[in-house]
Design a protein around this nucleic acid. Structure first.
Lengths: 139, 139
DNA sequence: CTGTGTGCAAACTCTTTGCATAAGT
DNA sequence: ACTTATGCAAAGAGTTTGCACACAG
């Protein structure tokens, strides 16, 4: 999954998602998908882009993150305090949420199972199950 | 748990939580705990109080909800879109989250178990586990 | 009385939007 | 050229905060 990406692969990926491979989108794709699984929030990514010398407005970062999410390239993880993190790992996995510093950490195993789940109310079906394990400092 | 509460019971409960039983806090406690399990957001509760003829400012509602949460009388449930719901059921249970209308519904069973959970990272311990089952309209 | 709680409005954070400009094809 | 994306700044939702006044003990 995280082979050696090249700019043209990013462009192709964006194209097939129906997104024009603009400078900004390619740059963001590169940061997001070029280096393993990541959890970023919009502001952090914007800061990173700026630090890398790319000029991308915060609004564009937000737009792009949502476009990528719609295209299935990212998964949105809303957390406490109204921030939204975006996870480059779109597979069905779960997270530790470290309350102290507001960070998400992947649960290093796909082995979680949820047992004893009742049927959903009439007319609704399960989209997916989020298990968030909240962690606090071990006193 | 949801016996017939009386104002003086509310006052006692507030007292033992180290909170002075002010008019506003008693009124809010009454709305929250006087009628079974509830999921409310600050604005809804404020609207309800206003509708009931109580004059309580939104800021006070927020303050009070957080005080109650700190006192263990409520549980905070942050959901998508940056809103925070408060659940009067503080026991360890879980929720269906209906994406279509942003509502939480208690999962009508305590039988959910999470299996296969790895140990948390060094120095951290599990505070609690939230299982949120996201529901969408059944096609 | 004395300290805590409340109300108000302003501030704050995160996010979205409108519209002129710029870039992709 | 023609269309779609970007940037900016302003608006928006939800929540928090500072400070003077009010109320509980």
């Amino acid at each position: 999954m995280t082979e050696s990406w090249t700019p043209s692969l990013f462009r192709a990926q964006l194209r097939s998602a129906g997104l024009r491979p603009t400078r900004q989108r390619v740059a963001l794709a590169q940061m997001l998908f070029g280096a393993g699984d990541r959890h970023v929030c919009a502001e952090a990514l914007h800061g990173e882009a700026t630090a890398a010398g790319e000029h991308i407005s915060l609004a564009t970062v937000y737009n792009t993150l949502h476009q990528f999410t719609r295209a299935g390239l990212l998964r949105a993880l809303p957390v406490d305090g109204g921030k939204t993190f975006f996870d480059t790992n779109t597979s069905d996995h779960n997270h530790f949420y470290v309350e102290a510093d507001g960070k998400m950490v992947d649960i290093p195993s796909e082995s979680i199972r949820v047992e004893g789940l009742p049927a959903p109310p009439e007319g609704l079906k399960i989209s997916h199950i989020d298990v968030v394990v909240r962690l606090v400092k071990d006193s």
